[in-house]
Amino acid sequence: MSQAAELTMEKHYDPIGSRIGMWLFLFTEFLLFGGLFLLYAIYLNKYPEEFHYGSSQLDQFVGAMNTIILLTSSLTMVLAVGALQRDRRKLSIFFLVTTFTFGAAFLINKYFEWGHKIELGIYPGSQELTQHPQGEIVFYGLYYAMTGLHGLHVIIGMVIMLFLLYFLLKKSHRALSIKSNQIQNLNGKRLLLSDETGKKLWKSQEITSEVTGMDVVVKGVFTEEQLKSSEVKLENSGLYWHLVDIIWIFLFPLFYLVSM
């Protein structure tokens, strides 16, 4: 039994290593969008007038609003990390929910913005758009591809936040894990939980041969261990969210401001 307890306690954390891993992943994202930015630069160079016209047709106000929303969501995300570092779990949950709400607000804006354009018949391959000059077709193609891919990243970031909320709200943890080789002779027997005087607290059902492992789970507590592992997860999710923010920092002037 004590051996099993030691095994579960021996969880190894390497926060620096895990952050390096996260950054390596972020570099691939950076290069993915970098390629698209390169494409944008080449076509801006080729069709400057059409790009300026296309950009003037986008709503600068909505673009600026979304920039402010994402910048603020980055702030609340980093505050969530800061709160958890100070062991303030509930404050961290509050900031995480706020960040999620900002992400949703961003997507709602995008939905109406895209919806308006699609209503006007301007979307890749539409009858209306194919009548427009080649440069404008390319501009809107890049607009939909790049803001669409970015929007997908916002959605992924929000899904990750839901997982984090689950980890931060889950008030139970595995105190003890018993592997199959330690319980092979328990077939047909029962487990008993008693206090130090031997008074019975709880008795299990008969253990069948189908049971190949056991966990002792403590409910109603949020342990130091969980706090530490949530902190690493939250930090890395924060890094992802800030990358999404950085990409928008570049998308905003390129699509909304080149016209002015």
Binding site: L75, G238, L239, H242, D245, I246, I249, F252, P253
Partner: peptide, 14 residues
């Protein structure tokens, strides 16, 4: 300006 903003985000938020 976008580059400057990214540097701020990376240095402090990240």
């Amino acid at each position: 300006i976008a580059g400057l903003k990214s540097i701020l985000v990376m240095n402090y938020f990240m």
